[in-house]
Structures are given as C-alpha cells and as structure tokens.
Amino acid sequence: MSDKAQNILIKIQNLHKSFPLSRSLTDFVLRRPSKAVKAVDGISLDIFENETLALVGESGCGKSSFARTIINLYKPDSGDIIFKGNNLASLDKANLKTAKRECQMIFQDPYSSLNPRMSIGDMLHEELLYHHICSKKEAQTKINELLDMVNLNKDTAERFPSEFSGGQRQRIGIARALAVNPKFLIADEAVSALDISIQAQILHLLQSLQRSHGLTILFISHDLRVVHYIADRVAVMYLGKIIELGTTDQVYTSPLHPYTKILLDSLPSVDPRKKSSVPAIEGNLPSPIDIPPGCRFSTRCPNAKPHCFNDEPGFYKVNDDHSCACHEYIA
C-alpha cells in the first residue's frame, strides 16, 4: 500500500439500501408495521485509486446489494456516492455515460446478466462501439484479444451464452467488463466458479491491468485464500455494515473484531485427513429483517458484555489504517 498514492477515487457516505417485504392483507388489517430487508445499513467507505479493496462477509450480509448501489443499479435510500469528486446522483447525461463506462461490474450471476439472444462476439462488438473504444475495423482484433485474455478460444465468439459452461460464462462477464477500459471495477465473486489454475490467470490479469492502467478494484469474495493473495486492504461486512477495515496484513495477522477472528479460524485445511470440523460461529445467523439492537454481532459474540446488547458501537480507529466496530476498542 505504501508505494501507492492515496487519492480517493470513490467516497461512499452513510449509504442505506433496503428492500421492503411484501405485506399480506392480514398484516395490513392488523396494522403490523411494514418490514424490510436492510441490505446496506449505513456504510461509509473511501476507496483509493489503484488499490484492490476486498469485501468479505457471510452470505446474505449485503455485499452484492452494496456493490449494485455504488454503481447506481439500485437507487440508494439515502447516502452519497462521490466518484472522482462528483456526486453520482447529480451528473448530467454525458458525464453519466462516461461514469458508467468507467465503473464496471462483473456480476455474481453471469448468466442472467448476458443477453441470451446475442452471440458473445456481437455483444462485445456492441459494447466496444457504443463506448467508442475502437473503430469498427479494429473491433474483431480487439474481441479476439479479450477472449484470449480470459482464456477462451477465439472460435467461441460465434456462440451464444447458453452454449458455455458455468466458469466460461463467468469469464465472458469478465471480458465484457474489461472491454471498455474501466477505471473502477467491482468484481462480485468473479472467480468463484473457476478452477485454481484459471483463477490464477484471471487474478494475474487483474494485477497487470492495475499496473498498466491504474485500475481500482473492489473485490468481493468469500474465498479468503484468494483475498489474501490479491487484496491491499480488506473490509469485513456483517449484516449490512462494515465492522472491520484494515490492510490485508493487519486483518489476517492481527484481526480485531471477534467476527473476523472466527472467520479466519474457520479456514478449512486442504488435508483430507483433517475431516474434523472447523469451528463454526455459535448461534443462529440473525436476519437482516430484524437486525439485533446494540452491536449487531452481539447475539453470536463469544465476548459479549451486557452493554453490547444495548449500545451500537462506533467505528474505532485502533491502529493506522486499521479500524473496527467493537466496544472493546473504544478509545
């Protein structure tokens, strides 16, 4: 990190996004309050230029919703997203188009994000021309380059999304996002369906784009091995909030939050002789519909004290670049 300039590329301020649950007629008649899934429940975060920031956290904690809200695919309930000094909500049409090109996302679910009626060559062609990345003449060469980059044969360009394997579709999503020379890339579980060898190739590709094009990456992954390998900083999310943020070294070697500690302890070994179970987190996963009062981790925390069930902790800076939302670290 130290060798990278610390200019803020994206500033996220107190972002909220919730999804209302459908109400039944009985709910209405009985005047039960309407409920909502609080997917993003107040996130503030600075993402620096040219860094890889990893976002990790339990399934369903709100990572994809957060990502989609950052790039305006979901309208935030409240909060601001400042990209290169400008509030995304107040851009005019032309600037919005540029911002849209500059912020790309590799979607967790590649198939639903691809048009089933378009061959992948045509799809890439359209992207390239729409964003004026290259001329019509150069497009074919560029498409071949892109396919090669993600390790697909160039004779696959004529095929339709349904004619690919799961991991190949994921790589098509990667090629599409990279086609338009983004500045900021959100990779939502972008290598989760790939075998280790191809994972390594894609990660090397991202690293080299970072060096050559100054790419900034928000890397969402549940694979703590891969995160350790690629990230400069790590943000840990729990039930809609970021509860720990630090450099990769800090988070992996001296985690602060009890949740992060448990997460790192539960890393599986690859040795088949150690079938013994990893220590899972105690207690039931609370729901983002009813977020516990006080500290949101209190219901499962091994060190919870009485006040943890009542007071929500702030986000305390414990060391340089290392912060955590736990009462234990109150300054």
Partner: peptide, 18 residues
C-alpha cells in the same frame, strides 16, 4: 451436486458440507 458451495463463505460452506 454441481458446485454446491461456490457462492458460500467458509462458515456456511462448513454447514453445507456437514
């Protein structure tokens, strides 16, 4: 089971494996 745990974090993956 075709890639049943690709989208799961370690703790939930552990639960599914069990």
């Amino acid at each position: 089971a075709d890639e049943p745990t690709t989208a799961l974090d370690v703790t939930i993956q552990d639960q599914i494996i069990k």
